[in-house]
Every structure is written in structure tokens, then in C-alpha cells.
């Protein structure tokens, strides 16, 4: 309960800070504010499908999987299957990273390991549809090497994060 009140308090404070920032922008440069709001609505519009996807997956996983099953696939005893699921999930997921926080928070409360959450988030950096653009700018050798390292280091990232950030 205290945690929830604290969370709401922090959230309100952050909203006030952002509001103050927007007021400052409005006073110093109305054109910048207009550009910012245009961008805000453009991003909001573009992420709506992802929002439906994320909460759709959450609804289905709540409906079909008991926390026990989630724990089996993504929890402590999930082993290599858990790593593969987190890696593939991270690579295949679309939209901005923050759109996936609610689902991961939900899975975490159902028993998903923190190392797998970290690996999922790290693999969000590997975006298959964007690889041709990276190849265009940096060449195919660079793109392949970087992608392989990113996938390998997502596991290292998960293990280290679990070790130092897993005590909550």
C-alpha cells in the first residue's frame, strides 16, 4: 500500500516537472512547443497498434497461462528454453521499448526471471526490418558482426543484471 502511494506520488511529481518543462518551452519558443506537440501526437498515433498488441498479448497470457506455466517457461527452471524465448521475443517485438514495460511487469509478477527481462529488453535493439538501413550506412559485415555481438551480450547483460539488480 505504501509502495503504491509512493509510486503515485513520484508519478505526480514527474508529471508536474514535465508540465513545468513544457511551460518553459512554451514561454521561450512557441514554435518548438508546436513541433513537440506535433511529434507527440505523431508518435502516439504510430504506437496505437503496438499498444493494442501489447495489451492483447497480456490479455491472452492472463487467460491461457497460469503463473505456474509462465514460471515454467520463463522462471527459475526455464533454462536454455527461457533464454531462447526471451531473445526471440525481444528481436520480434515491435514498437518503442517502453510499450513493453507493462507486459514485462505483469510477467515479472507471474514469475519471469529478471535476467530474461533484461535479455528481452536488450534484444529489442536487434531490429530485423531495420537491418537493411544499417547495411546501407555501415556495410553488411559490420551489421552482421554487431548483430551477433548484440545477441551474445544480451545473455551476459541478463546474467549481470540479475546478479546486481535482482534483489528486489
Amino acid at each position: 500500500m505504501i509502495k503504491k502511494i509512493l509510486r503515485i506520488g513520484i508519478l505526480r511529481l514527474l508529471f508536474l516537472l514535465v508540465l513545468a518543462l513544457y511551460m518553459a518551452v512554451w514561454l521561450s519558443s512557441p514554435a518548438l512547443l508546436q513541433g513537440t506537440l506535433t511529434m507527440f501526437f505523431r508518435i502516439l498515433w504510430s504506437i496505437l497498434p503496438v499498444l493494442f498488441l501489447v495489451f492483447g498479448i497480456m490479455f491472452i497470457s492472463n487467460l491461457l497461462f497460469e503463473p505456474k506455466a509462465i514460471s515454467r517457461y520463463l522462471g527459475k527452471g526455464s533454462g536454455i528454453r527461457g533464454w531462447l524465448l526471451a531473445t526471440a521475443g525481444g528481436i520480434l517485438s515491435t514498437g518503442p521499448i517502453y510499450m513493453w514495460y507493462p507486459l514485462l511487469s505483469d510477467l515479472k509478477s507471474s514469475g519471469m526471471k529478471k535476467s530474461l527481462i533484461a535479455a528481452f529488453l536488450y534484444n529489442r535493439a536487434v531490429k530485423i526490418p531495420m537491418l537493411p538501413v544499417m547495411m546501407y550506412y555501415f556495410g553488411w559485415e559490420f551489421t552482421i558482426i554487431l548483430t551477433i555481438y548484440m545477441i551474445i551480450f544480451s545473455v551476459i547483460n541478463g546474467i549481470v543484471v540479475e546478479k546486481i539488480g535482482g534483489g528486489e
Binding site: 511487469s105 529478471k114 527481462i117 533484461a118 529488453l121 547483460n157 539488480g165 534483489g167 528486489e168
Partner: peptide
């Protein structure tokens, strides 16, 4: 996702 986790990550 929690303070410790987010900072560590």
C-alpha cells in the same frame, strides 16, 4: 520494473 533492476540494466 523496479529501481534496482532499471538502474542496474
Amino acid at each position: 520494473l523496479g529501481k534496482r533492476f532499471a538502474l542496474a540494466r
